[in-house]
Design a protein around this nucleic acid. Structure first.
Length: 832
DNA sequence: CCTTACATCCTTTTT
DNA sequence: GGATGTAAGG
């Protein structure tokens, strides 16, 4: 509501007055010079179109690096400048909170104060805002909390156990992902039950679980991530009057990364862009497309702008439906489509490689990125013997770039799975390269942080029994499962909540020691509650959250327990908790009126990518998923191996290999000037060393674009365990036996055998050819004293053998090369 | 009720 | 290799 008054205030200071609800109409841009002409400077004709178009529906197909963020921000600025919209009429949806923050900043830098009052946020944040306002309408309270995937997994785990559902193959993980998928399709337990054969006991149990899960959430006054969207849609459908409030308010809706929206998000957009008052009468809801009813007053519907690129759709696994974007024109008849193909980010070499790779996806609209900045450097390829060797190459190369004047913050290292970061991290530490891991074991997923937050939840939302159960014995208070069950039964018998039962510790019939512990916990929670949630009408001081948190941790005994512990990790845990308190203080500074709930909401909805990268002066490490939307001068894509990218699991999923290719495409198009593709011949995956094969995607890159610093062939014919990063040998010579994939496994649908391109230069003749087999010495027996010959190092004597099985390492003293460690299974050695 | 030892599963990707 | 779960003993 402050938005509205702020807008009104500004309205007084500008010459053109537009009625409060009279939307666009008489816009200013028909007369004379455009008020937004400065916004169009430096834009190409297509970008211009996208900024100035005014109509019901606009699809901006924005290839990687085509300046879409700039277009989107200028479009918003233009809407404001031309008085086609008030700030409060704009709803812009981005993929991450960070993207939202950046967009807001950029709009503000153009139009200044006038940007206030816009909603620029993620789907999830926007829905929380709406739900908090409307929660009382449908069986929740404003104090609802948000379950992240860990929370809901814990709940599901408990339910699976209670229903003995694992007997039907319903593991917690499987159940969770099925429920999530269904929610993304806007199904609930009842509607799902109608579609399946309920005589199948497994289905019956699943429906039972789904229903129980939902009841538990409601009882706990909590939403999970998927609910935030789906329940908002239900809210709008069940209460058209409420929906109309938001339809009236948001006249211009803009959605970024539209290719990654799922059905629920699509439905939400659909609801918001209906004409006001249009669903006074019921309409066919539920699965699939809804037909746009003949609307009497189409101009009443909000205008919709979506931006996306189907080649960058990488979230199908969590329900993103590429049809949302590919059928946009069908969904919104008369929609205007603008195509942005000129790339302002990368060199032509990088773009050609990207085009070639993505061109292998069939069933896609052909789109070719181009640039006028020139070819630039060749892509560099490197093959390490192990992931450590590969990491060493990356570290050495970052150092070389640094010396050449590239700032660390302009370099990034990508990988497919989070676990790959470990090897990189080890080497980076040793090489003293400053780095920052985005994501990974996330701060807010650490046990101690979750515990601390559970304390806050226990205060802010007493209905949330999960949170209470989590902290009731942390630190150890002697309250185990038996006691918890006792409390739970007592609460049920008395018809009170679990939280209230804690207040009656003397009535529980537990031992005096335990009774005292419960009473103490109850007291601490009550005290914190008083601090953070003053009686209605009063406002808690900004510092209340931070102080309340400290109170809980101190008086609750959490800090003491950690400090008393002799586990060295607990020291780090204390530091993490201190950091959380600091986060709470920071929050208070930015949101003087922020409540505990606001704090918890913010914390629940931050993502890795948000974890702000003022990584000033450090190299960024992240997954390719996290990399979406970012760009760097130099990019290293590591682990370019079969089973990793494309990931092994994707092989059996419909469309899996294609999505993996898009992911790889996203990775390489992040690079501005330099792109490195690296892999390792062996990779330690959960203890065992496995032999890795070069990714099929490497073959899809034209040979003349890729210069192998050390090709898979080099590694195959010559051996060794230490890094070759700095003294890399020339590629070519003697390498490149055999073709690709010979006897190897086959994957998925799209392993297309490529005719080999004739390489342009002789020097790198077979450089891009990928060998089928890696050397394998089988179970070569070696022991101390044995003499061996190594292809590179010559003869030497074995000092010792360590490790087991495939990981056996020989420590060898060579006559010329000195002491080396060799992985016996694959080193190019023969026993003498 | 807590601690320890052993077993098992696992690894995509995330709001 | 790591986290998480189960069984046994204290």
């Amino acid at each position: 509501m402050t938005d509205a008054s702020a807008a009104a205030q500004r309205a007084a200071s500008v010459p053109v007055i537009v009625g409060a609800h009279a939307g666009p109409g008489a816009s200013a841009h028909d007369t004379g010079a455009r008020p937004d002409s400065d916004l169009l400077e430096g834009l190409n004709p297509q970008q211009r179109d996208a900024v100035v178009y005014r109509g019901q529906a606009l699809l901006i197909v924005a290839g990687a690096g085509s300046g879409k963020t700039s277009v989107l921000t200028r479009r918003i600025a233009s809407l404001l400048r031309t008085k086609d919209a008030w700030p409060s009429q704009i709803l812009a949806i981005t993929f991450t909170n960070k993207a939202a923050g950046e967009m807001r900043e950029r709009v503000e830098s153009i139009v200044g104060e006038a940007a206030r009052g816009m909603w620029i946020s993620t789907f999830h944040s926007a829905c929380v805002r709406i739900l908090r306002r409307e929660a009382d309408n449908f069986g929740f309270t404003k104090a609802f909390t948000i379950y992240d995937s860990g929370d809901s997994r814990a709940l599901i785990k408990r339910l699976v156990k209670e229903h003995e559902a694992d007997a039907f193959g319903l593991t917690p993980a499987a159940t969770q992902s099925r429920i999530s998928k269904l929610k993304n399709e806007l199904a609930d337990a009842e509607s799902y039950a109608r579609t399946v054969n309920m005589s199948d006991p497994a289905e019956r149990v699943f429906v039972e679980l789904f229903g129980a899960y939902q009841r538990e959430l409601q009882k706990a006054n909590a939403f999970d991530f998927d609910d935030l969207i789906a329940q908002t849609v239900y809210l709008f459908r069940a209460f058209p009057k409420v929906a109309d409030v938001y339809r009236r308010r948001f006249r211009h809706i803009l959605v970024d990364e539209y290719q990654d929206t799922n059905h629920a998000q699509y439905a939400l957009i659909r609801e918001l862009t209906r004409p006001i008052g249009s669903d006074a009468e019921p309409y066919a809801a539920g699965g699939g497309m809804m037909i746009f009813e003949a609307e009497p007053a189409a101009e009443d519907a909000a205008s919709l702008t979506v931006v996306g690129d189907s080649d960058q759709s990488i979230y199908a696994f969590r329900g993103a439906d590429i049809r949302n974007i590919s059928e946009f024109e069908k969904d919104f008849p008369g929609a205007k489509v603008v195509l942005l193909e000129q790339n302002y980010r990368s060199t032509q070499t990088i773009l050609s490689a990207a085009n070639a790779v993505i061109g292998h996806n069939f069933d896609r609209k052909d789109k070719k990125l181009w640039t006028d900045v020139g070819a630039g450097e060749q892509i560099v390829g490197f093959t390490g013997y192990s992931q450590h060797d590969e990491a060493q190459f990356v570290a050495d190369e970052t150092e070389a770039l640094r010396r050449a004047g590239v700032d660390y913050s302009q370099m990034a290292v990508f990988y497919r799975t989070n676990s790959q970061s470990r090897a990189l991290e080890e080497i980076f530490i040793r090489a003293a390269v400053p780095y920052k891991i985005m994501g990974g074991t996330k701060f807010y997923e650490r046990a101690e942080i979750k515990d601390a937050l559970a304390y806050l939840v226990a205060v802010a939302n007493p209905a949330d029994e999960m949170a209470l159960r989590r902290i009731i014995n942390k630190p150890r208070r002697g309250i185990g499962d038996v006691t918890i069950e006792t409390i739970s039964r007592y609460a049920a018998d008395e018809g009170i909540t679990f939280r209230d039962a804690l207040g009656n510790s003397s009535a529980l019939g537990v031992g005096p020691k335990i009774q005292k512990a419960i009473a103490h916990l109850d007291l601490v929670l009550a005290e914190a509650s008083e601090k953070m949630l003053p009686a209605s009408g009063e406002l808690a001081p900004p510092t209340a959250v931070a102080e309340g948190l400290q109170l809980l941790l101190n008086k609750g005994g959490y800090y003491d327990a950690l400090r008393a512990s002799k586990d060295p990790q607990d020291e780090a845990r204390v530091e993490n908790l201190d950091e959380l308190v600091a986060v709470a203080r920071e929050f208070a500074r930015n949101n003087p009126e922020g409540t505990v709930l606001d704090f918890l909401t913010e914390v629940a909805l931050v993502s890795d990518a948000d974890d702000l990268d003022d990584a000033t002066g450090s190299v960024s490490l992240m997954t390719m998923h996290t990399a979406k939307g970012l760009e760097y001068d130099a990019v290293f894509v590591t682990g370019v191996e079969e089973d990793l990218i494309p990931h092994r699991i994707s092989a059996n999923e419909p469309g899996g290999p294609q999505e993996e290719r898009r992911l790889f495409y996203v990775g390489i198009t992040r690079a501005r000037k330099r792109l490195y593709l690296s892999l390792a011949m062996t990779r330690a995956q959960f203890g065992e060393v496995t032999v890795a094969m070069p990714s099929r995607f490497l073959q899809e890159i034209p040979a003349d674009l890729l210069h192998w610093r050390q090709s898979p062939g080099d590694v195959n014919s010559r051996g060794g365990m230490q890094s070759r990063a700095l003294n890399a040998r020339r590629p070519g010579g003697g390498s490149g036996s055999g073709g690709f994939g010979g006897s190897g496994k086959r994957y998925g649908d799209d392993l297309v055998p490529l005719p080999r391109r004739e390489p342009s230069g002789n020097l790198e003749k077979f450089a891009n050819r990928i060998p089928a087999k890696v050397r394998d010495n089988g179970d070569m027996e070696l022991g101390p004293g044995d003499r061996i010959r190594h292809d590179d190092f010559g003869e030497g004597k074995v000092d010792a053998v360590t490790g087991e099985g495939a990981k056996r390492v020989a420590h060898v003293r060579f006559e010329k090369a000195g002491l080396k460690k060799l992985l016996i299974k694959i080193a190019p050695i023969t026993k003498l």
